[in-house]
Simulated assay, not measured.
Amino acid sequence: MPTAMLLHAHPDDEVFANFGWAYDLASRGYDVIGVIATGGEANELHATASLREARTRRIEKYERALDMLGASAWTWLDASAGWVDAPSGPSLAGAAPDQLRVGVERLLTQHRPDIVLTVGSDGLTGHPDHVAIARALSTATNRGSVPEGVWGARLRADDVRAGGVLVGSHAREVQVGSGRVVGTTARLVARDVRSSAAARRRALDVYREGLGTDSLESIVSGADRIGDSIVLRGVFDATGWGQEYYEAVSPDHGSTAARQNAAC
């Protein structure tokens, strides 16, 4: 059975970045495994002051989302590192690059995935933790051993602008997003992910009630701030939920046949 690895900084990155392609791989018989570096605690600290409880809450959501995606299991990038997504504690972005690279190399050696899906060189959203993950994969000395390639999700600049306009049409003098989500004008590989759209909407709901299935207008009007997750929802709506875009994390990512298989 071929193996697909989803490698990310936080729980929920797999839904925003790679859900469609991963869903397709699972439906085609790939054993899909998730890898995260932190527990995504920041998104749960509004509900609890306990970092441990925040991690537990987020991991429960991660496991539910992976079930919807068709993944079989998940693991930590480096369980001994103690990285957290929180105002205090060791951060992924602050980790030594060599530590991240070695962790990635260890995972690739251990699991020998046929394909790896992650975020592109800009981290998809510009988040420093995301960028650190993309950099670690790009510098891993054994990344060339992945037969079907290492692929990073990107957004097109035109789609980001369209999504921002759509979100902004429902906002009233409120800042929209962090400003880090900008997209790219570079040529990307497109994946048709229409078959996974409904499941992706439900998976977004796991992380934030209604984020995938409520109307964008109701999400914006009910939010105390317009974060990047809402910006990405706007991008999905603006583009029809039908495609994901990718760049090869390294130019020697795999065979010509693998590249042709990835292209639409």
Rank of each mutant, 00 (worst) to 15 (best):
109 T>H: 12
89 G>L: 08
127 H>Q: 09
118 T>C: 12
119 V>L: 14
90 P>R: 14
151 W>F: 11
104 V>L: 01
143 R>N: 01
128 P>K: 14
158 D>A: 15
147 P>V: 11
137 L>A: 01
117 L>Y: 08
104 V>I: 11
94 G>L: 14
121 S>E: 01
88 S>I: 14
120 G>S: 06
130 H>R: 05
140 A>E: 09
85 D>F: 02
146 V>Q: 05
94 G>I: 07
153 A>P: 06
90 P>S: 12
108 L>V: 04
92 L>D: 04
157 A>T: 11
90 P>W: 11
148 E>N: 15
150 V>H: 01
142 N>E: 10
97 P>N: 08
91 S>F: 01
127 H>A: 10
104 V>D: 01
159 D>Q: 13
151 W>D: 08
124 L>H: 04
92 L>K: 09
116 V>L: 04
116 V>Y: 03
141 T>P: 00
103 G>P: 02
138 S>G: 13
158 D>I: 06
83 W>T: 08
114 D>V: 09
154 R>C: 15
137 L>F: 04
151 W>A: 07
85 D>R: 01
95 A>Q: 07
137 L>T: 00
142 N>P: 03
121 S>T: 01
121 S>D: 02
107 L>R: 11
159 D>F: 08
155 L>P: 04
150 V>G: 10
147 P>G: 05
110 Q>T: 15
109 T>G: 12
85 D>K: 03
107 L>P: 13
134 A>H: 08
142 N>V: 13
119 V>P: 03
145 S>T: 15
84 V>N: 00
135 R>D: 02
145 S>C: 08
102 V>D: 13
135 R>S: 05
88 S>W: 02
89 G>A: 04
82 G>H: 06
128 P>F: 07
145 S>L: 14
96 A>T: 10
134 A>V: 01
91 S>G: 14
139 T>K: 02
87 P>Q: 11
133 I>Q: 03
86 A>N: 04
152 G>I: 10
113 P>R: 07
142 N>I: 06
125 T>I: 03
97 P>A: 12
123 G>E: 05
113 P>Q: 03
144 G>L: 09
98 D>R: 15
120 G>F: 12
90 P>H: 06
112 R>F: 00
136 A>S: 14
86 A>H: 12
152 G>M: 10
147 P>Y: 09
106 R>K: 13
85 D>I: 02
123 G>R: 11
104 V>N: 02
81 A>M: 04
141 T>V: 10
154 R>Y: 07
118 T>E: 09
145 S>E: 15
84 V>R: 00
96 A>P: 12
117 L>S: 07
137 L>M: 06
83 W>Y: 11
115 I>P: 03
139 T>G: 00
86 A>I: 10
86 A>G: 09
127 H>C: 03
144 G>E: 07
119 V>Q: 08
135 R>K: 12
87 P>C: 07
91 S>Y: 01
104 V>K: 06
136 A>E: 06
83 W>S: 06
127 H>G: 03
155 L>C: 11
104 V>G: 01
94 G>D: 15
97 P>G: 13
110 Q>N: 08
102 V>Q: 13
153 A>G: 06
147 P>S: 09
155 L>Q: 13
135 R>I: 00
96 A>F: 03
105 E>Q: 14
112 R>I: 00
158 D>H: 12
149 G>R: 08
110 Q>E: 15
143 R>D: 01
102 V>R: 13
124 L>E: 15
89 G>N: 09
98 D>I: 04
154 R>S: 13
119 V>N: 09
128 P>I: 00
85 D>P: 06
138 S>N: 07
98 D>S: 14
